[in-house]
Amino acid sequence: MLSGAVENGGDAHVIFVNNHVNRTANFLPSYGFSREFLQAGVVGADEIRPGDVLGLMIWENVDDGLLVGLGQSSTQLQQLQVDSQGFIFVPYAGRIRAAGNSPEQLRQLITARLETQTPDPQVSVTRVAGDGATVSIMGKAFGQGVYPIERPTRTLSAMLAKAGGVAIDPEVATITVKRGRETGKVWLSDLYFNPSYDIALRPGDVILVEEDQRSFTALGALGRQTKVPLGSEQISALEAVAMVGGLSTLSADPTGVFVLRDEPSQVASAVLGQPVSGTQRMAYVLDLTRPNGLFLSRDFMIRDDDTIYVTEAPYVRWQKILGAITGSANSARALAATTGID
């Protein structure tokens, strides 16, 4: 590892972890919503939108009105769908813009159009159904599907509750919201502890519930060698080693715990104390035998795609060499005994 360092003509920076490294290298990519998400106000529950289906009831104060048949006082116009441009058509009132208005505002518009042709018309507007104000919930939610934005479900947490919540461990659940070209992502726990992330929803939002996919790889003289999910928002090097069974008591070298990662130029420049360009290969070394070694490893944060490699103690390699030599000698003696050759 040391022979491949930049100082020896290699392409990796070998850095012994100290307090300065912990302060500068512990950069954790954070999730969150942009200003566009955070500043969006809640959708008005009574606002009519394209795709909504409306029902009209019209009363006329004459025996034989424009819309009312002979001997009747009212007529119903059901299943009037607001078109993609936001308009509906009402006989004798013409094409009227419904989108953006409340049912009461639309009632007043229709009344104003009809009262020039029939005396004192009375109009009632109701929302029958609608698909113009909906969001889609996908992924690891109990109730995937398309849900309308209603008065109780105008925020992200309320809509997730409407869908039955998440079907995975809440500690590793992430919530992604896609709105047009904008995308935001937060931890589910942030919705509980940071109310500003409980954003107002908009028609057409796509909500994706996922299990955190971040992981690190453990290699070398450890309890097991495998790829390990990080499991929570922050994991230290000490915790990561413990997650794979700790150091092997028979073979690990506690002076050679390496954390290998590709570091972005901004962080690498801060760690090295000099400007560098482009992503840098970094090998951070943790020496657990130093007086503060355990404290430093407790404070060193593991990131996605890190590799933790623990070297073997020198005496282990020596035992392997001796084992190979003595094994060869024993094999030779066994062969001689079998063939009778001295």
Rank of each mutant, 00 (worst) to 15 (best):
G4P: 09
G9K: 03
G9H: 11
D11V: 00
N19C: 00
N22E: 03
L28E: 03
P29I: 01
F33V: 06
R35I: 04
L38V: 06
A40T: 10
V42Y: 12
A45T: 02
E47F: 06
P50A: 12
D52F: 09
V53P: 03
L54P: 11
G55K: 09
E60R: 07
G65A: 00
G65H: 10
G69Y: 11
G71K: 12
S74I: 06
T75Y: 02
Q76P: 05
Q76N: 08
Q79Y: 13
V82Q: 04
D83I: 08
V90Y: 10
Y92D: 00
R95H: 12
R95T: 14
I96T: 01
R97Y: 10
S102N: 05
E104R: 10
L109R: 13
T111I: 02
R113Q: 14
T116H: 14
T116V: 05
T116G: 04
Q117L: 14
P119K: 06
P119I: 08
V123K: 05
S124W: 10
V125L: 05
R127N: 12
D131C: 09
D131T: 13
T134S: 09
T134P: 04
V135P: 03
S136L: 13
S136K: 08
V146K: 06
P148M: 00
R154I: 04
L156G: 01
L156E: 03
K162V: 00
A163Y: 15
A163I: 00
A163R: 08
A167K: 00
I168T: 01
I168D: 03
P170Q: 09
R179C: 03
G184D: 02
Y192T: 12
F193D: 00
F193N: 02
N194F: 09
S196K: 15
Y197L: 03
I199S: 14
R202C: 08
R202V: 05
G204F: 13
D205L: 08
V206T: 03
V206F: 00
I207T: 13
I207Q: 02
L208P: 01
L208A: 12
Q213K: 07
F216H: 02
T217I: 02
L222C: 07
L222E: 05
L222N: 01
T226C: 03
K227S: 08
P229G: 04
L230H: 09
G231A: 13
Q234D: 01
V241I: 11
V241L: 15
A242N: 11
A242R: 09
G246C: 13
A252H: 04
A252E: 11
D253G: 07
T255P: 05
T255L: 09
V259E: 01
Q266Y: 15
A268V: 00
A268F: 11
S269H: 08
A270S: 06
L272R: 14
G273I: 07
Q274L: 07
Q274A: 13
P275S: 07
T279N: 07
M282R: 14
M282F: 11
Y284V: 03
V285S: 05
V285H: 11
V285F: 02
L286N: 01
L286Y: 14
L286R: 05
T289D: 11
R290S: 13
P291C: 01
P291H: 14
G293D: 00
S297H: 02
M301A: 09
Y309C: 04
Y309K: 00
E312M: 15
A313D: 09
Y315V: 15
V316H: 13
V316Y: 06
W318A: 05
W318V: 13
K320T: 11
L322K: 14
G323E: 01
I325W: 14
A332T: 02
L335K: 01
